[in-house]
Design a protein around this nucleic acid. Structure first.
Lengths: 157, 157
DNA sequence: CTGTTTAATGAAAACCATTTTCATTAAATA
DNA sequence: TATTTAATGAAAATGGTTTTCATTAAACAG
């Protein structure tokens, strides 16, 4: 059975090959970074984390790989409104998967909140079902974001 | 009393002057377009609607005015993930103000849904209060977006 | 293991929405 | 009407992302 801890076949190799993609050192490095990431990373963040151990991997490859991962559904791409996309593994190692954020529009600090999520998820499920039916959408994901000013920025004014 | 139907002082002039901004033909045209807009417009959309009657107004002014309006809280700026921002008057002429969208990730068709909103708003109010308290955020707005493939794109595949 | 096919790659250029620069114009006010 | 200075357009700059193109290397057949 494929494992996610390094022993045995790497979990995503099969899916990659199945899609006709090759396994390369760069892609291994990028997935590796995403797998241990604590938060959503920008393409440049990924680059900065990959580069030290893999100077041969350029930013272009980061973008290309992230795009593939997003299209495969392995990675979620976020837009917080600051002009750069953020990426995050869909199946994080620990935390269940939420896209519920609190965004500071001043410093772009982003908090993934987990409170109140259960009721939200319940309601969203119902809403999603209703919207799918009414508008004929095939809904694949959702996002909830609260925008405001974080406590630090409130003080530092 | 300021009115919004064209008779009497224009409702936003006071707020504009109060902020030290001048009333110009370009700004009148831009606000005019936003006031009759049926949906969220990109800066270029606004430009295309303003330009015929006001060839003297450039795209730069559109961007500058929209930024002012966003900062003043008169206009909301959205990011649907296709690399261009959309703008919408906060106080639309008719519809109450919702930021609940259904986004087709293929054709970028965007539907503002109004179903299921009441329960959502109720829950969001509670969530917002809880988050504000827990994280010390001063929350000013929120957004809910469902992503998927619209019925047209599903067929056209 | 070796050769062949073709996907993957890096570097540089292109892209494109948005922002900035700067000299000019015009709104507000005296 | 004159003065002040915000607003403006055109063009250049910006910056994240994508494309181009010649080179490299993963996959796989023999």
């Amino acid at each position: 059975m494929p494992r996610r801890d390094g022993a045995g076949p790497v979990w995503w190799h099969g899916r990659f090959r199945g899609c006709g993609y090759r396994i390369t050192a760069g892609r291994e490095a990028i997935l590796g970074v995403l797998m241990i990431a604590e938060k959503h990373l920008s393409a440049e963040d990924v680059y900065n984390k990959v580069h030290p151990a893999n100077p041969a991997v350029g930013l272009t490859t980061i973008y290309r790989t992230l795009e593939i991962l997003v299209n495969m559904g392995l990675v979620f791409k976020f837009d917080f409104g600051d002009g750069r996309a953020r990426y995050e593994l869909v199946e994080g190692s620990k935390k269940s998967h939420h896209h519920h954020h609190l965004v500071c529009t001043k410093c772009m600090r982003i908090i993934d909140y987990t409170e109140f999520i259960n009721e939200e998820i319940e309601l969203l499920k119902t809403t999603e079902k209703g919207l799918s039916k009414k508008y004929g959408f095939d809904i694949t994901s959702h996002i909830i974001q609260f925008y405001g000013i974080c406590s630090v920025c409130q003080k530092g004014n």
